[in-house]
Computed example of a mutant assay.
Amino acid sequence: MTRISFIFHSFSGRLCLMLLTALLCSSYSGSRGVQIHSHNDYQKNIPFYRAYSQQVNTIEADIYTAPASDDLLVAHDVQELDTALTLDEMYLDPLVFLFKQNQGRAWRGSEQILSLMIDLKTPLHPTIDRLIAKLEKHPEVFDPAVNPYAVRVVITGSRPDPSAFGEFPHFISFDGFIDVEYTPEQLERVALISEPFCRYAKWKGGPEPLPAQEKQVIEQLIAKSHKAGKPIRFWCSPDNAVAWETFRKLGIDIINTDQPEACTLYFQQNP
Rank of each mutant, 00 (worst) to 15 (best):
L24Y: 00
D41G: 04
S26W: 06
A66E: 15
S5H: 13
Y52T: 06
C25P: 06
L72N: 11
H76P: 12
F6E: 10
Y28A: 00
A22H: 08
Q35E: 00
A66D: 15
G13I: 11
A51G: 06
S27D: 13
L81H: 09
D82M: 12
L17V: 03
D77E: 08
Q43I: 06
S27C: 11
L20M: 07
I46D: 00
S31K: 13
Y64F: 15
V56G: 08
L24C: 00
P67G: 12
E60T: 02
S31E: 13
V78N: 07
A61W: 14
H39E: 08
T83E: 11
R50G: 00
Y28K: 00
T21I: 09
F48E: 07
R14W: 12
L24R: 06
Q79K: 15
F6I: 11
Y52P: 11
D41L: 12
S10M: 06
D71T: 01
L73W: 03
A68S: 14
K44T: 02
L24D: 01
T65A: 11
S5T: 12
C25Y: 09
L73E: 00
L17A: 03
L73C: 00
T83H: 14
V74W: 02
A66I: 05
S27V: 09
R14Q: 09
C25W: 11
L17Q: 13
Q43L: 09
F11H: 11
H76Y: 13
S27T: 12
L72S: 07
E80L: 01
A75M: 01
L15F: 08
L17N: 10
F8M: 03
S69W: 15
L81C: 04
L24A: 02
Y42F: 14
Y52Q: 04
R50L: 02
L15E: 08
H9C: 06
M18L: 05
M18G: 03
R14H: 10
D77Y: 08
S29C: 05
T21D: 12
A66R: 13
D71W: 00
D82I: 12
